[in-house]
Design a binder for these strands. Structure first.
Lengths: 128, 128
DNA sequence: TCCTCATCTGAACAGATGATCAGATATTAG
DNA sequence: CTAATATCTGATCATCTGTTCAGATGAGGA
């Protein structure tokens, strides 16, 4: 064990201080981290994830079709879309009485794809 | 509006029934969806996300260095690693008294990269 | 063996969160 | 304008989740 000083001046004891310093210097700042985990948290709810995969598949759907596609109450869908919209994950387009939603970002599409890939091609959790 | 029958036999009213059917047929099944959202949920906690970005940066770190790097109590780190380990997101390797953790999967690294990219290069949420 | 250090675990409390309901808003048809 | 349809919103409640604490476990040195 050796002793180093953290960025905040506190004395820190660590096994690999150079790695600790590397991490402390390059880590996402608080705001960035908050936004990153907020995105993941949005995708972390099964209801919202279901809606997002539906949009990934269909490209664009109105609330009532989303509700029908995912066997979810419309109010629940609306509630979920409210959050997704507020974070810019989906975008709404009004056409007459209907509002059509789509994934607003290629990054999100990539996240959904990669994770589904991860799940279907990796060993079951808890094996390692 | 037109009327179609869902896979469950219930009558469904929709604007674009062909898209609804497309989604219903290709959507992730319940188990797949649960596992996908479980992964996202794990990344959705700021504490865990911080740890994962630390591991992404350092490659491998023991619990005490992780705690020091992220200014988090060791018990909290340990608790977080317990969950990440159980889902196969990180892997632990014992070396003497220390346990060194690393990201166990390239998919996870990609998710972390893409999302940080997403956050840093996209407009603030709520603007669209 | 005994002691210390690093890490893990189960329990408990406080705070966050999602589904649901009832009512509000917006848009179009009549 | 009024009615009807689609979507949205605020509030409530049951549930989940993260942090913390105290003690257990496992490894290494004396």
């Amino acid at each position: 064990m050796s002793v180093v000083e953290g960025l905040d001046g506190c004395v820190v004891v660590g096994v690999h201080p150079e790695k600790v310093r590397l991490v402390v210097e390059n880590a996402p700042d608080a705001d960035e981290l908050t936004r990153v985990s907020a995105v993941f948290k949005l995708l972390g709810d099964p209801t919202r994830a279901r809606l997002l995969y539906a949009l990934l598949e269909a490209g664009e759907l109105c609330v009532c079709d989303l509700a029908a596609s995912t066997a979810t109450a419309e109010a629940t869908v609306s509630q979920a879309l409210r959050l997704l919209r507020a974070s810019g994950v989906v975008t709404g387009r009004r056409e007459g009485r209907n509002v059509f939603y789509r994934l607003s970002d290629a990054h999100v599409r990539l996240l959904l794809d990669v994770t589904r890939e991860h799940i279907t091609h990796e060993p079951e959790p808890g094996r390692r």
